[in-house]
Write a protein that binds this DNA or RNA. Structure first.
Lengths: 240, 240
DNA sequence: CCGTATTTGTCCGTATGTATG
DNA sequence: ACATACATACGGACAAATACG
């Protein structure tokens, strides 16, 4: 199969090739086709997408700012390889934002919003019963997005979304076992209960604990600490 | 025109022109030389920095991802003009992260770290007494960076830094009056006291309240409520 | 409403730097 | 250590779309 080139969408023309290329490369990275640490060959990417190197380079700059790739001069760009420590940092930011959003919701949530959250929990419960990991995954994604959207706001949603993408550079999709789904969804229910009860402190605690438990599960399941971290394509904010 | 062209750093060559251009344009925006809503002329920027359009375009893609500019096809890029509602969102994210960092610090702060924070408070106190707003400003910046760095971590620092930059698109530098400095620094002291006492809840509350108070001060001082909120990117340019 | 000028979007060519035999 | 091959970095040119008179 010769590359689902961008020419297929050429009819639209409502967006620049750089933006389309950016999304295409982003997909290649999050889907794992471009693995962590791998080199991004501009010419190859341009050929694959059927465009020239200009838009490719522009797209890579965006990904660079987004933290998906790192660039070294005269050597090119590489898919960012984040360390366990960096992953921990990302998780902590999510913990902070989720906890705050839950606390905020406990004070300001409407009955409609709570109903939406409860419906999502039901949907995930059904997915878990059906062993449908994919459906649970999307439901979980929407649940957390709703949580942030209701409480924090759109910007917080975007930040969490980007953090999730970066985390996918470390863990290849959070594989959830049936038991894991059940436990995770029980935590979701805890969160919504606290929110519905208007218990600010408990809502925050439940929200934080949920993410933190996911972090713990993830860090416990990681084969090796992978202390090599920085390598040569380390973050430019390198320290120590 | 002074034109602090990039040629001065041409000797180093340790970084790409795109990254240097990005920082240069970023400075132009943050410093207010390029005002909100203003159009970014690629050719003019290239001429000003003494380079070609290629690196300029790449730099703009980075700023776009960073939220400093918005781009519309076949029309170019504009300095992002954020609404009061969006500014409120940004503030809330900072509230969440600062509160979490303070709570974290209350549990894990070392005596050395607390000493550093206290020294910064002293420095700001001196700056306030001397009516040195600039020194207070930098001290304040470092204080908050330290707060995040100790607790949340480097990534949280970066996020808060970027949020602060975006906020500068709305408010032209948070002008702090002498009384404002004094009140603000008193809140700093409250935060550090709670951290030193190991009081998690109070530390979080103090951290959140500090940012929230800054937000309130800012929103109270804003000339117009601008209730439109304009969604997403809003109207790029004030044109009829 | 139309023609012109300006600017963006894209592609290609060249030079420089790095990796490698 | 030297030479070769290759990829990146940058500049410049062309076409299309938009803005303006």
């Amino acid at each position: 199969m010769i590359a689902p080139a961008l020419e297929a969408l050429d009819i639209l023309r409502t967006r620049t090739l750089a933006s389309l290329a950016g999304e295409a490369i982003e997909r290649l990275i999050v889907d794992g086709e471009l693995k962590a640490g791998e080199h991004l060959n501009e010419l190859a990417l341009a050929a694959r997408l059927g465009i020239s190197r200009g838009p490719i380079r522009e797209a890579i700059r965006g990904l660079e700012r987004g933290g998906l790739v790192v660039t070294v001069v005269n050597q090119g760009s590489f898919v960012r390889k984040i360390s366990a420590g960096e992953a921990h940092e990302l998780y902590e930011v999510r913990i902070a934002l989720t906890g705050y959003a839950c606390a905020h919701l406990a004070q300001h949530a409407t009955t409609d919003q709570i109903k939406i959250l409860r419906d999502l929990i039901k949907r995930m419960s059904a997915a878990q019963a059906a062993r449908d990991a994919a459906d649970y995954y999307t439901g979980n994604l929407e649940f957390h997005a709703r949580l942030m959207d209701f409480g924090g706001n759109r910007r917080a949603v975007r930040i969490c979304d980007e953090l999730g993408q970066e985390l996918n550079l470390f863990r290849r999709r959070s594989l959830v076992s049936p038991e894991g789904m059940k436990a995770s969804n029980a935590e979701h229910a805890d969160i919504v209960r606290a929110i519905a009860a208007g218990d600010v402190a408990r809502a925050r605690e439940a929200g934080e604990a949920h993410i933190r438990r996911g972090m713990d599960r993830f860090e416990a399941s990681t084969p090796r600490p992978e202390t090599d971290a920085a390598h040569k394509n380390g973050d430019r904010t390198a320290k120590g």
